[in-house]
């Protein structure tokens, strides 16, 4: 708790003229100028392949992969629900595996192949999982949906690749494409609207070759 306590940042007098020019004009007259905390943001070039297209960006090293997608590439299909790896809304596929894009910095992904919801399909050319979500009403507000769909696509691949799970009765056997396997493996993607049963139905439809 910070009550009755006053703490300050360590005062350093590092000035980086180039980076502060925008800020300098808006510093009110009463503020003491030129006492800047820390270093100016470091910007580095980042090259990604996003949805099959090469993207070259110049990014603040603090920018997450999620914000690189949403704020820099304007691919806002990937959602920010918590920014702390707690909800799964930001799930994307990186080199074919699902990750929470809020939990890694963009600079960690030099040369990586990123697939977002926009890369899976479009309204005119839906991915099978997207069609199945529509058919089974596997969403309501839609905010967790891109993350759920990316996760669902990855989960089917993970099961087919034989990656074991907590609910598997015998981990030496190939895991089944079952309701409980889907539900267990999808549990990192929260849906507060509670569309879980419909998402499981959509996954079963795709796993069975339908949708």
């Amino acid at each position: 708790m910070a009550d009755n306590v006053k703490t300050g940042p360590s005062r350093r007098t590092v000035i980086a003229a180039g980076a502060v020019s925008a800020a300098a004009t808006s510093i009110p007259a009463y503020a003491k100028p030129a006492q800047l905390p820390g270093k100016p943001p470091m910007r580095v070039p980042v090259s990604l392949e996003v949805n099959g297209q090469a993207k070259k960006l110049e990014l603040d090293t603090r920018t997450t992969l999620l914000d690189a997608l949403r704020e820099h590439l304007k691919l806002t299909g990937t959602k920010k629900g918590c920014d702390h790896g707690q909800c799964g809304a930001c799930t994307v596929l990186v080199n074919g595996e699902r990750i929470n894009s809020c939990l890694s910095l963009a600079v960690q992904h030099q040369g990586d192949k990123v697939t977002t919801i926009e890369g899976l399909g479009t309204p005119d050319k839906l991915h099978a999982m997207q069609s199945a979500f529509i058919k089974h009403d596997g969403y309501q507000c839609g905010y967790c949906t891109p993350g759920q769909i990316c996760s669902a696509v990855a989960v089917l691949d993970e099961i087919r690749a034989g990656i074991p799970s907590h609910v598997q009765l015998d981990v030496s056997e190939p895991p089944p494409l079952s309701n409980m396997e889907f539900r267990e493996r999808m549990s990192g993607n929260i849906c507060r609207c509670g569309a879980y049963s419909n998402i499981a139905a959509a996954m079963a439809d795709v796993a069975g070759g339908g949708a």
């Binding site: 309204p123 839906l126 969403y139």
Partner: peptide, 9 residues
């Protein structure tokens, strides 16, 4: 609104 929601649009 399904096609928009499921494709991130």
């Amino acid at each position: 609104d399904g096609p928009l929601k499921t494709t991130g649009q």
